[in-house]
Simulated assay, not measured.
Amino acid sequence: MSDLIESEYLYIHVPFCIKKCRYCDFYSQTNLSLIPDYVTALVREIGRRSQSTVSHPKGNAATVYFGGGTPSLLGPRQLETILQALDNAFGLCPQTEITLEANPGTLDEIHLKSFQGMGINRVSLGFQSFDPAQLSLLGRIHSIDDAVHAVEKVRTAGIENISLDLIYGLPGQTGDHLIRELDAALVLMPAHLSCYMLTLEPGTILHAMHGRGKFLPMAKSDQVDLFRAAAKYLKTCGWDHYEVSNFATQTCLRSRHNRAYWQMVPYHGFGPAAHSYAVKSDTDGSAVYERFWNAPDLNGYINALKTGDLPPSGSEILTREQRQMEYVMVGLRTSMGLNIKTGQNLWQNRFLTVFQTLMEDLENKELARRRDAGQRFVLTLEGWMRLDSIIASFVEKI
């Protein structure tokens, strides 16, 4: 993990959408006239925050991830301004993985060529579905043709590292339907797939519809069956299932940015509602683990930075128990699983004492196995299908 720790991981939250999707609980606004003021404020935040950050050698930024919202609503000059600010503050290099999330209905070929020229080398396209009825239910603004042409546009611009997002587990969906969805995605030859199970998040339109009896979600057990079907099918197609919801054609095409999250590596988040994670030294030299975030308030964000202040924010110092729970929760989601040595350090040499019986029970049930000469504990596909209950079993012992 040392190569991860010695690098910078940068997240930019772009809080703009043409229309709010029915399933999405990420912070965004539809007033696109605020984009110029947002970009000005964002550049100021990057400058202010980087001055108080102990950075690694310039040019050591491993990833930049533009998430949202809909980052593809930004124009070339706006993206270039942001990237220049990041370069000045942290140092970008040709090896930096720079990801842009995009809605297929908001991509311009000329803009894409500019994006590629300024270093953007990975695009994550929010397809969600190849079924018009499901796109309508989800509240997406693009058509199937928009989605297919988006891949062509990205490739024509010279960007080959393309990830597609799909959502499954919608009412009425069957295993055969899901396989057809996957086949439609595979025909486009993406480098990466993110397949997310539909969840009803509080504050979303679908959640409100459910409360009014206007939307009946699929039973959890049926969603789990679809998860098994998708995982097994993609495995037969040669895909690397490296995290519960993520698949890559090759190990080198796994998301480097998300890998930092899953391995609890410090990262910087900029923009309203963005989160950051830092490891600092206390006065006695001990490590302090802090998570902090900007408030989900675009106007407050712009106004604060306009007057030279940092935006409204919150923070928390993570206790050892919180870090232990997060280690288990994110580690068990990945094909790398839990590193026994890391666990021993985090539990002050008591990891195996606390969890040995539980781990042996999961292995006996073929829900987990040891890897790398017993140094890693990973869940099998059947274990991933019971992920929530397995994590709960670990948390009970913390």
Rank of each mutant, 00 (worst) to 15 (best):
F394C: 03
S114A: 15
P217R: 08
F215Q: 04
C237F: 01
K214G: 01
R44A: 15
L226T: 10
E366A: 14
G203W: 07
Q344M: 12
G238R: 08
F90L: 05
T81E: 14
M264W: 09
G117Q: 13
L107G: 01
S194P: 03
D372I: 10
E80V: 01
A184G: 11
V330S: 04
Q84L: 12
R254L: 07
S335A: 15
S194H: 02
L112F: 07
Y196V: 09
G75I: 06
R212C: 08
L42G: 07
I167E: 09
M1D: 11
K232V: 14
T53C: 09
P266K: 04
P266D: 05
Q344Y: 03
A191E: 15
G105I: 04
S55W: 06
C252G: 09
H177K: 11
A62N: 06
F351W: 02
N103D: 15
L346C: 02
T342D: 13
I5T: 13
V54I: 14
A133N: 13
P104E: 01
L83N: 01
I340L: 10
S276Y: 02
L253K: 14
D87C: 03
D145G: 05
S28E: 05
G139Y: 04
H275R: 07
L164R: 04
A260N: 02
Y9I: 00
F394E: 02
L112R: 01
K341Q: 13
V279K: 13
L318S: 05
A85W: 00
K153Y: 10
A89I: 01
T353D: 14
I340F: 05
L79F: 09
V43L: 06
P76K: 07
